[in-house]
Structures are given as structure tokens and as C-alpha cells.
């Protein structure tokens, strides 16, 4: 086999957690790697690099996406949200994060950011979902520790935490 050539760095401009970023990346660099190793946003984890485990799930343009199945260059002009952007600047946890803590929705914590980002777009409607609907909404995210019970409970009740806060 011939020796692969190293490709040139190219510029990509994107928004990550509200901050504009201009980066030089190799075309083949995965968005997951660039978020983690170039921007230091290591909350996005890498578990399989073939799109099945969901540990690397982020929001791209407000929708959940596998950051291991996107090249960083493809994020040109996109708004990316990662787990680091969830809590308030003063450290107050997002209702989803708070719910995960209350209901023991995490153990080792490796899959957790992916679950949080996957649940973020729909958690406000989770209260009204049937058990089966909620499980289906979270299928696509693997957790090896919790057996999902705490996660389901957390996603279901997060909006009630948001309401508690609203009333407080």
C-alpha cells in the first residue's frame, strides 16, 4: 500500500456553546476529536466511533447528532452545543442535570453527556410519554452501568424541576 499523504489544514468557522470559533483542522478530523482535543471540551465522549453508542452526541443546529460521524469541516457555520454549555454560568445545573443527580441517572458518567444532549430537545414533553415512548426516545444511547432506570426517571421528571425553579 502506498503511504497516505497528510492533508493540509483547512479553516472552519463554527459556534460552540454560543462562542464563535475559528479553527484550523485536517479534513479527516472528526468533530468529536476537534471538540475534545482542540477546544478542550472533553465532556463529549467517544465510545465507538461508528455511531451506535451515542456517547458523543451533541446538538448540531439544535438537533442531536453523533459528533463521531461528522468531520469538523462539516460543522462550518453550524451552531454546536455540548454538555459544557448546559449548566448556567453561575454553576446552577440544568434541570436535566439536576434530575440525573436526584435519580441516580449516572454511574461512571461516560455515557451521561450523550444522554443529556439526546434528551435536551424533548425532555419538556417527556412527562406525558408512556414508558415505551420514553424508552424509544432514548434508544440510540447506550448505558452500561445504570440499567436505564434512573435515566428514564430523570428525563421524565426534569421538567418538573424546571417548574419548581420557575415557582421559586
Amino acid at each position: 500500500m502506498s503511504v497516505p499523504v497528510r492533508s493540509e489544514l483547512q479553516r472552519v468557522t463554527l459556534t460552540v456553546n454560543g462562542a464563535a470559533q475559528e479553527l484550523e483542522v485536517e479534513p479527516r478530523w472528526l468533530l468529536s476529536d476537534v471538540l475534545r482535543h482542540q477546544l478542550g471540551l472533553t465532556g463529549t465522549h467517544v465510545g465507538c466511533e461508528h455511531g451506535v453508542c451515542g456517547c458523543c452526541t451533541i446538538l448540531a443546529g439544535g438537533r442531536p447528532a453523533r459528533s463521531c460521524l461528522m468531520f469538523a469541516l462539516q460543522a462550518e457555520g453550524l451552531e454546536i452545543q455540548t454538555v459544557e454549555g448546559l449548566a448556567s454560568a453561575d454553576g446552577t445545573l440544568h434541570p436535566l442535570q439536576e434530575a440525573f443527580r436526584r435519580h441516580h441517572g449516572l454511574q461512571c458518567g461516560f455515557c451521561t453527556p450523550g444522554f443529556l444532549m439526546a434528551a435536551l430537545p424533548f425532555y419538556r414533553t417527556a412527562e406525558g410519554m408512556s414508558d415505551q415512548e420514553l424508552r424509544e426516545a432514548l434508544a440510540g444511547q447506550l448505558c452500561r452501568c445504570t440499567g436505564y432506570a434512573g435515566i428514564l426517571q430523570a428525563v421524565r421528571t426534569a421538567s418538573s424541576i424546571a417548574r419548581e425553579r420557575g415557582q421559586a
Binding site: R36, Q38, T44, R101
Partner: peptide, 22 residues
């Protein structure tokens, strides 16, 4: 009791080995 370790793991501030030394 709620877990002491959750705060960092929920906010992306956990430190797994690959999170070190980029």
C-alpha cells in the same frame, strides 16, 4: 444520599484518561 461525584460528571468536567494531555 445523592452522589458527590455527579456534579463534575454531569457538566463535562469529569476527567477520563483521554481527556488529559491533548
Amino acid at each position: 444520599v445523592e452522589r458527590r461525584e455527579d456534579g463534575r460528571l454531569l457538566t463535562g468536567a469529569g476527567r477520563f484518561t483521554d481527556d488529559l494531555a491533548h
